[in-house]
Amino acid sequence: MNKQIFLNFAVKDPDKSMEFYTALGFTNNPQFSDETGKCMVWSDSIYVMLLTHEKFSSFATKPIADTKSTLAGLFSLSLNSVDEVNTVMTAGLAAGGTEPSEMRDYGFM
């Protein structure tokens, strides 16, 4: 079996969050999506689960972080070029995302 990773995020509005991740290039897997959560596919082995706070809380043992005022994690996407990074960033900002700090090239290309 191919190893996979599922990142689970607590979101207020799964449909709006799905629109945002779709703008970044993810696709929705309706087989694992309903009104309480959306399964977004980045690759054959990486998935993001967008879960309502109620659904997320059913798996969690600690309070959900308020990501407007606290940091819950750092996540990165692997892309093929600086141009592709800029395209995804532009799409994310246009879909309602915010840029928390100035973009920097860390030289991993």
Results as ranks from 00 to 15, higher is better:
residue 50 L to Q: 07
residue 74 L to A: 11
residue 59 F to W: 14
residue 47 Y to R: 00
residue 62 K to H: 09
residue 56 F to N: 06
residue 108 F to Y: 15
residue 40 M to V: 07
residue 18 M to W: 01
residue 45 S to G: 07
residue 58 S to W: 00
residue 43 S to A: 07
residue 43 S to H: 09
residue 94 A to M: 03
residue 109 M to E: 10
residue 53 H to E: 15
residue 85 V to T: 15
residue 33 S to Q: 10
residue 62 K to F: 15
residue 39 C to Q: 03
residue 7 L to W: 12
residue 100 P to Q: 05
residue 43 S to Y: 06
residue 13 D to I: 11
residue 48 V to Y: 01
residue 26 F to R: 01
residue 91 A to N: 11
residue 105 D to N: 15
residue 85 V to K: 02
residue 57 S to L: 11
residue 74 L to Q: 09
residue 37 G to H: 01
residue 30 P to M: 04
residue 25 G to F: 07
residue 16 K to V: 06
residue 67 T to D: 08
residue 20 F to R: 07
residue 90 T to G: 07
residue 3 K to T: 12
residue 98 T to H: 09
residue 11 V to N: 05
residue 78 S to M: 06
residue 101 S to P: 05
residue 38 K to C: 05
residue 96 G to T: 02
residue 107 G to K: 08
residue 50 L to Y: 03
residue 89 M to I: 15
residue 59 F to N: 08
residue 14 P to T: 11
residue 72 A to I: 04
residue 30 P to D: 13
residue 21 Y to H: 06
residue 19 E to H: 11
residue 95 A to S: 08
residue 79 L to W: 01
residue 65 A to G: 10
residue 83 D to P: 06
residue 79 L to E: 03
residue 72 A to P: 13
residue 17 S to F: 01
residue 60 A to C: 01
residue 72 A to G: 15
residue 6 F to G: 03
residue 85 V to Q: 08
residue 67 T to C: 15
residue 35 E to L: 10
residue 108 F to C: 09
residue 72 A to L: 04
residue 32 F to H: 07
residue 25 G to Y: 05
residue 58 S to K: 01
residue 11 V to Q: 05
residue 2 N to A: 14
residue 21 Y to Q: 04
residue 52 T to Q: 14
residue 41 V to E: 05
residue 64 I to K: 03
residue 15 D to G: 07
residue 73 G to R: 06
residue 78 S to C: 04
residue 44 D to P: 00
residue 10 A to M: 14
residue 72 A to H: 02
residue 97 G to W: 09
residue 12 K to F: 01
residue 35 E to G: 04
residue 24 L to W: 08
residue 97 G to Q: 07
residue 54 E to M: 12
residue 31 Q to Y: 02
residue 22 T to R: 07
residue 50 L to W: 03
residue 86 N to T: 02
residue 22 T to D: 06
residue 67 T to W: 00
residue 4 Q to F: 10
residue 104 R to F: 13
residue 16 K to A: 15
residue 11 V to H: 00
residue 89 M to C: 10
residue 22 T to I: 02
residue 109 M to T: 09
residue 20 F to G: 01
residue 107 G to P: 09
residue 21 Y to A: 02
residue 76 S to F: 10
residue 100 P to R: 02
residue 63 P to V: 05
residue 46 I to E: 12
residue 61 T to E: 14
residue 50 L to E: 08
residue 46 I to C: 08
